[in-house]
Design a binder for these strands. Structure first.
Lengths: 344, 344
DNA sequence: CTGTTAGCGCATTCAC
DNA sequence: GTGAATGCGCTAACAG
């Protein structure tokens, strides 16, 4: 495969009979070019099939238009949707997206990814990794030193940092209030792993809403997001609370486990047991019964991260005026069969 | 936020009392540097926290280490896993990954993405988009003109092109043969949209295996990958074939629809109806009953794409010696409850 | 409005 | 082994 020598701005300039500078102006849509000159240059560009070398442009101008995205657990629905939202909005804003996936979450791997992005001269970074409370310090420490605009997703607010999150606590409140309105009285919770900030927030929202009781802890089971753990959670909660009549389950996969465990035990949903999940994965609509669940606007969150990051990059948004409220996206409740008792 | 002036190779050279070339040599692990000099330079690099500017390196050397990945439908399990496989292997091989997502599949959008990648000087491209037969021509035409190593995923073999696929046909054969071995006699199929090559291949594998019959077409229902269409497919197939006793369903989501339709109609799985799905999504293990399904090694496919692309880039693998067999990854059957009748 | 000069940070020649 | 010159393709700052 013989490569045609790449055509450069110089070739275009020669062919058009102008200087490279003029071509550069046309490429960058500068106003100070005579309309005819512009036309001529543009037609030459088209004829030659010229495409500017972004690498050279970046080196010369001292800035890239690449944002680095650090992702995690793409095989899950939420993270994949966040990434989709990021990419779409980035493309719209003219940014390229460089992707790095993290699976180990220690200093070595974090530094490696960040070093790579810095070497690539990314103009901003989106840290699309769930907040694990056990490594919060580590991330803060490393990113503090960074002098690149950075958006952190789904973790507790940090002073002077751009953090964007789904309002998990409010989502949990919505779920529990709905169950209460449906007449359920003893509402348990299956949480995610407590090392996840999101899991903690959902638990907090539940706790706020169910009210006080001396035996609240008996209503809590810590799962690990898997279907299996939902199944276990069902068994454990019922053993501890024979009069349990509803469960707020912190994600949809675990809800599936609960549904199946309930079926196995001859419990009717929603008559004997009300269930609300979290995520609104596409399948949840087709669980049996259809699952009431909290919809996370994950895609919107990703898009918003790009918008804010862009504002930071253009110095139109500073850490000093960060207001948590505007960087919280609010989930909403999708009511389906699993939590609605028939009128009798 | 005051930016420290970026430190360059020059700063390192000055601080170490050597020339920039020597630093460059150390950076690139060239052999022709005195051990002591190397040590000195390395310690200076560490002290200053210097990180090489990859942009400058790329311009100077005339090659990047960036591969462009064009993706589609990340919110689905398969594509997300493929992307994960690509990223992991790319990182291992020292490539950066630039990601672009396509949702519209017309000439304009395709060209836009490709133009962007070329401008970014990517050294190779992975086209991780399902083969839609209605736009096969378009892609071929556009990529033919491209003089960049390129891997195409999950589409029909093209002469002189690097194409990597899951062996969908073999996957379907495995599924149908298994059903036959379990004693099922009348095996229908719910396909994906026939505009997808993967759907066609699964259909072909089914057809090869079920044997001849004059009324084969009555055993086929075209779905659209959604749970809903699985439900519809169940109804349609049973109306057309009262003696149907098994269905090969072309993905797991549709299988869920079938399972629920069967439950609703009082049909027992696997006693009255055997089901085999395709994909092996994590939930399929917890469907009720647990779903027998064809596991796609999607992650492996992504990794293999990087390996082959790397070989092409290094000219160790040429289009002339492409052998389809070695670029087909073979799925395997995960046998669970939904297709295994108890011995009586 | 347009051209000239300079330099981005690094790697690739070649000298020494 | 090491250093000096040169240029990658482009844009910024000036001059005209």
């Amino acid at each position: 495969m013989i490569k045609k020598a790449k055509i450069t701005i110089k070739d275009v300039a020669n062919a058009a009979g102008v200087s490279t500078q003029t071509v550069s102006r046309v490429l960058n849509n500068r106003p100070d070019v005579a309309p005819e000159t512009r036309e001529t240059v543009q037609s030459v560009i088209r004829e030659l099939g010229y495409a500017p070398n972004i690498i050279a442009r970046s080196l010369s101008s001292g800035r890239t238009n690449t944002i680095g995205v650090v992702g995690f657990g793409l095989e899950y629905y939420g993270p994949a949707k966040v990434l989709t939202g990021i990419e779409k909005k980035a493309a719209e804003y003219g940014y390229s997206v460089m992707l790095a996936l993290l699976d180990k979450y220690d200093q070595e791997h974090i530094e490696k990814v960040l070093t790579q992005f810095i070497a690539q001269q990314v103009i901003g970074i989106i840290w699309a990794i769930p907040g694990f409370t056990d490594s919060m310090e580590l991330v803060a420490q490393i990113t503090d030193a960074l002098e690149i605009p950075m958006a952190l997703l789904n973790r507790p607010p940090v002073k002077k940092k751009l953090v964007l999150s789904v309002d998990n606590r409010e989502g949990a409140r919505l779920a529990v209030r709905h169950l209460q309105e449906q007449g359920y009285q003893h509402i348990g919770i299956i949480t995610g792993p407590m090392s996840w900030w999101e899991a903690q927030e959902r638990l907090a929202g539940w706790r706020e809403t169910v009210g006080k009781s001396s035996n609240l802890h008996k209503l809590v089971f810590e799962g690990d997001w898997t279907v299996e753990s939902g199944d276990c959670g069902f068994e454990a909660l019922f053993n501890a609370n024979p009069n349990l009549d509803a469960i707020f389950v912190s994600n949809d996969q675990m809800s599936l486990g609960v549904i199946q465990a309930a079926n196995r035990n001859g419990l009717k949903i929603p008559e004997n047991l009300g269930i609300v999940g979290f995520d609104n994965v596409p399948e949840s609509k087709f669980y049996f019964p259809a699952l009431t669940t909290v919809h996370q606007p994950a895609r919107h969150l990703g898009g918003l991260a790009v918008i804010r990051l862009d504002q930071c990059i253009r110095h139109e948004y500073s850490e000093d005026c960060i207001n948590d409220g505007e960087n919280m996206v609010v989930p909403d409740l999708i009511v389906r069969r699993s939590s609605v008792r028939e009128e009798s």
